[in-house]
Amino acid sequence: MKKPVGIIHVKVIRAHKLPKRDLLGTSDPYVQLRLSGEKLPAKRTTVKMNNLNPEWNESFNLTVKDLQSQVLELHVYDWDKFGPHDKLGMQVVPLTLISSHEPKEFILNLVRNQNLNDPHNKKPRGQLTVELSYHPLKEDSHRLSRPLERHESQGIESEVIERPNEEDLNSCQAGLLLVTVQGAEDVEGKRHTNPYALVMFRGEERKTKSVKRSRDPCWNEEFQFVLEEAPLKEEIRIQVMSKRTKFCFRSKESLGYVDINLSDVVFNGHINEKFNLINSRNGVIHVEIRWEMT
């Protein structure tokens, strides 16, 4: 898995002279956007009903893993209540064309596809205006001061990290929160033990794979949250769940959870700890969290 190197800020501003797809001579457009090579679900704007010249002014953040090879893919669709949504046009922007920190406006002529020899691409499909800027992540300056230690007070392992100075902390703004759920130990359900982990933060919920019939599951899965400001006064909840392989009444049950204060993560830049699970007899979960600023 490639390490993130930066964040692309995308502002979808407007479209102009989009094709007509509906029976009433108009369209209900929305824009879908993603970076090439990314497995995460695409982001999308709201739908503008009955509008061939829609204004969105909606902003999105995308995590960059390879600035030289990735491109921003923008697809404009006509929303339909029934059936598949019609494609109005698309365009791509190589990330190498995007300026660092300073927003740059692009007016893109929409095409049917990326095949330069396709005669359908000669047909006008309207224009899409976006504003783009690239924000590289700062190099990790929070080096470990010594190897993994055991905290006697809690009986858990954690890496001891050299703290940044107060000026660096106050300058924390946008950045990337990287949460890696390594695994768990001694988790056990009353009816079944097929554990998976839920990562819950700011109304979003991410889920690891399920490990069948295991009290010591190993996931090693990373989840990314692009934030406009440092989560200094926030918590993230990680809950271990179990689910029966076949549908039945009470098919899910909680095996324990932990709420992690993120101020320590922002201040240290990185934690790697084993936490005792609440509402679990002996359960422990191993989590690594990094905060990388732009």
Rank of each mutant, 00 (worst) to 15 (best):
K87Y: 03
S69I: 04
E139K: 08
D168G: 04
F82D: 12
L88A: 01
D80I: 03
I98G: 00
S100G: 02
N165Q: 10
T96M: 14
I98F: 12
R125F: 07
P136G: 02
E139H: 10
A174F: 07
S171I: 05
S171W: 05
V130S: 09
Q91N: 14
V160M: 11
R112L: 14
Q114S: 15
E167C: 13
K123G: 04
E157G: 07
V130D: 07
F82M: 13
S141G: 14
P124A: 13
P164H: 03
S99A: 14
S99F: 06
S141H: 10
E167K: 13
V111K: 13
S153Y: 04
S153C: 02
R150N: 04
Q114M: 14
Y134E: 00
P84F: 10
R163D: 02
H101A: 15
H101P: 01
N109E: 14
N170E: 06
G89V: 06
V111F: 07
P103I: 04
E139G: 13
Q91I: 05
V76T: 03
G155N: 12
E159Q: 08
L128N: 02
S100L: 06
A174H: 08
N121Q: 05
P136A: 01
P94K: 07
L95G: 01
Q70K: 03
P94I: 08
R146W: 06
K87G: 03
Q154H: 08
L137K: 11
V111I: 12
Q154D: 09
N165C: 15
E149F: 14
S153W: 02
P164Q: 00
S99D: 08
E152I: 05
T129Y: 06
K104H: 13
Q154C: 13
P119R: 07
M90C: 12
T129K: 11
L108Q: 04
N113R: 08
N113L: 10
